[in-house]
Amino acid sequence: MANTGTYCVTTATRTSRIGLMLMLAGVAFLSLTPVWGGRSDMRLVVEFCYFLALAQMWNLLAGYAGLVSVGQQAFVGLGGYALFVSTIFMGVHPLLALPLAAVVAGILALPTALIVFRLRGAYFAIGTWVMAEVYRLSFAQVSVLGGGSGQSLPINVIKSVASSRSDRELVVFAIGIMLAVASTGIVWWLLRSRHGLALTAIRDSEPASESLGVNNFKTKLLVYVLAAAITGFIGALIYLQKFRIAPDAAFSLIDWTAYVIFIVVIGGIGRIEGPIVGTIVFFILREFLSDLGSWYLMMLGLVAVVIMLKAPQGIWGELANRFDLHFFPVQRRLYRSDGQTPGGSA
């Protein structure tokens, strides 16, 4: 009688166990970059990590909370500037400045949210963009930060990370790996927590969940602030690697949001595996095609349009549906289908 239920559960746990093994193998492979690769490989892996982390955050917002933001560059920029301001003017140690950047971005996300949450749907999207523009233009006005042309991280600040260049790169590399793992883990944890159910409700039917009223708003706010804080951390790490910040680059729509949206759409929106698949595909495409310049961007746009129309669940969504894959099971009903299963619901 409960046979089908039990069968479902074992299938899910088997694929998720395989998935977990694959993920661990992937993380191990990337973590060992300093062993098998050179400095440029390490840089590339760090970049991969922060794009993956950005994509996880955007997917959390758009894919789960229904908050389609095109203004996440606001928090990348704020995180980057938080690193510069706190290390240069307040003498904070750069590694301490990373969590500080998360706090700053999270705090500034509150007033930002209070403004943009007044807008619905697509207008919310453009509203977040206006906020990012406001931050960009504001930083361009601050002359002690170099105004529009920006500023470099002083050598003594850079040296305080670690005295040798290779050590510094190793530190940034290690943080990058941890960031990618942690951002994926946080999204997974959040979706399995009690907020996960509320998020799924919001995603599945905004109007229906809207009748839940205040909780809906609170859940969205929580997700927005959390995503902003982590995006701020990512921003600080990006500029700890780049050493130089300027408003146009730090608050760049293309670099920090457009690419990220393409990654998530191509990989599969509303699934934890989507950003991972998307980031891998994005980096492969970039390695081969980025020399094409604007043709490359046109192609990315075209791919995103076609995927949105023909396979709105993205590459991972298609694969998962076809082969019933769930590497990160967050769907409780799989577990609840048989109440007897130990360790079932999260």
């Binding site: 758009a62 389609v68 095109v70 749907g121 697509a122 999207a125 293309i254 457009a258 949206i261 393409f262 759409v265 929106i269 604007s294 043709w295 961007l297 046109m298 990315l300 746009g301 075209l302 995103a304 349009v305 949105m308 129309l309 709105p312």
Partner: peptide, 18 residues
Amino acid sequence: ILPPLLVTFGLSIIIQNA
């Protein structure tokens, strides 16, 4: 709301770069 938003976003990038 996602499909129109993301499709026109993709369109925006395509037009700009074209």
